[in-house]
Amino acid sequence: MDKRLPGLAEAVSGIKDGATVMIGGFGGSGNPIELVHALIDAGPKDLTVINNNAGNGKIGIAAMIEAGMVRKMVCSFPKSSDAQAFNTRYLAGEIELELVPQGTLAERIRAAGAGIPAFYTPAGYGTELAAGKPVAEFEGKHYVQERWLKADFALVKAELADTHGNLTYRMAGRNFSPLMAMAATTTIVQATRVLEPGGIDPEQVHTPGIFVNHVIEVTDPQQEEALIRAGAHYERA
């Protein structure tokens, strides 16, 4: 078994128009920038993108939006230090937004990966974000029914991978990535180092390889926050 692919372009070539794509990361941490930029080069359209945020500056998801690739964002917090790319299109009615409380977003993704079609959460009960959703009472408290959130693809950044797809993440860069790896039909990982089987101590594996389809080594990956502070701008090559 060897899940390595030689390059980023091959890795994202299966992502076609209309696909739903989960992208790991929270704010400037844990974003698979190189995979996202390879996807911009490939240029599929009408994508539904699932991430905690809706892009920042002119790189990553913001650059996907600028390139007109995104039909809908599913996220909890479409605000950032420079959210112009999303804001402009949202206020012009050119991009759809499904706003989900952050914990509900995480649990919906986890549920999809765990084969649980719906669950109840207290978050959002009595608010506009729960409008129209089924409500039930448990032990005297009200809860909102939420449904699983699946995707065709997940793009994930890991620190270490082995050729079986076992992963470790770096610090708070972990965030949504282990959940998205479970929830997507096809999970594509960029890792700073790709090791032979046994290279990661089984005690230290954060995501077991069964959730991972493809691994690409990207040594010295870029950091979203650092790129934004440097004023970087990504456009299709």
Binding site: S76, F77, P78, K79, A83, F86, N87, Y90, L91, L97, L99, V100, P101, Q102, G103, T104, T121, P122, A123, G124, T127, L129
Partner: peptide, 15 residues
């Protein structure tokens, strides 16, 4: 009006 953003606020008030 504007762009809504909720983050973890609706989760944090429970529990």
């Amino acid at each position: 009006k504007g762009v809504p953003a909720v983050g973890g606020a609706m989760d944090l008030v429970h529990g």
